[in-house]
């Protein structure tokens, strides 16, 4: 391979990686926000993403909605589901050992996966082509119009989220709860409500990712959330869990690493590479790329 074609392939993989990565970033945001507020690795988050994809699927096939209405419906539906999960399964365990909540999250995850199998059958569904896919040629590079869409929608949602977190009353409350829950409560913040909204926002973002993936890969199934969910979590840790820009950075990095490994080495090692880099990061910078390392005071 001469150097110019190497560079071309590198650039092409970079493009694929960034669009895949922005999906990881959307899912990772939910993980990081929930972790920031209640210090829970919400293993059911990947399955909320799957439910979002299915809502999008039925909105387009049964209700005949277009892409944007379907996306909105999926986000609202998943948001409500997220709030419900928090209310029913996590809130009663607010003062329980952390590991018990984690097991509950695993239970919720299994319930969503296998409950969906009962409800919509385990067979993969073909997501309707709601948007045309036209390849755009720039030089020798090919950018799919859907990749542009994924990037556009994710960027838009991230900007909105950043605005909400930084400039609204709800955002301030979220940051306060994440910084110190007890003090936030003493300052008159309704902590339960803030946690509930955090779940809603995180779940809505995951649902958006689910619909985008459905549009891009055309295929959805009840177990589709397991691997992306896990990797999005890894992405959140990579960026620094609890840190919102960290989740975005981690997600995009994760996508790029995967695209490069499958493009240049072998796609079977793709997942191993992602985890390998995670472990290296953890060993040398345990709080993640953008996280702050807090030492226990002696």
């Amino acid at each position: 391979m001469d150097s110019s074609s190497f560079l071309m392939q590198f650039a092409q993989q970079l493009i694929n990686g960034v669009s895949l990565g922005s999906i990881y970033a959307l899912i990772a945001l939910g993980y990081t926000m929930v972790y920031g507020t209640i210090k829970l690795i919400n293993f059911a988050h990947g399955d909320v993403y799957m439910v979002g994809a299915y809502i999008g699927f039925f909105a387009t096939t049964v209700l005949g909605l277009g892409f944007l209405p379907a996306l909105l419906l999926a986000m609202v539906g998943a948001g409500i589901l997220g709030m419900f999960i928090e209310r029913a399964a996590y809130r009663p365990l607010r003062n329980a050992p952390k590991i018990a909540v984690l097991i509950t999250a695993i239970g919720v995850s299994l319930f969503l996966e296998y409950g969906s199998m009962l409800l919509v059958t385990p067979q993969p569904r073909t997501f309707p082509a709601v948007l045309s896919s036209t390849p755009i040629h720039i030089g020798g590079l090919i950018i799919n119009s859907q990749q542009v869409l994924i990037l556009g929608v994710s960027l838009f949602l991230m900007v909105v989220l950043t605005y909400v977190v930084n400039y609204t009353k709800l955002g301030k409350a979220m940051r306060a709860v994440s910084f110190d829950t007890d003090t936030a409560r003493l300052m008159g913040i309704d902590v339960d409500k803030v946690i509930s909204y955090t779940f809603a926002v995180g779940s809505a973002l995951a649902a958006a990712a689910g619909v985008l993936v459905g549009v891009y890969y055309n295929s959805i199934d009840p177990l589709m959330g397991i691997m992306p969910g896990l990797k999005a979590f890894v992405a959140a840790v990579l960026g620094g869990i609890g840190v919102i820009p960290g989740a975005m950075l981690g997600g995009v990095l994760m996508g790029v690493i995967e695209a490069l490994v499958s493009g240049f080495i072998s796609s079977t090692f793709r997942d191993a590479a992602a985890f390998g880099i995670l472990i290296i990061i953890l060993l040398f910078k345990p709080a993640g790329l953008l996280g702050k390392n807090i030492r226990e005071k002696v």
């Binding site: 191993a272 390998g276 472990i279």
Partner: peptide, 27 residues
Amino acid sequence: PTLRLSGDYLAIATLGLGEIIRITILN
């Protein structure tokens, strides 16, 4: 090397290592 980490960080590292072991065997 990994047990320097604690809590959730150790959890995710061991989860990742478990997957790396599996993927390595797969190959």
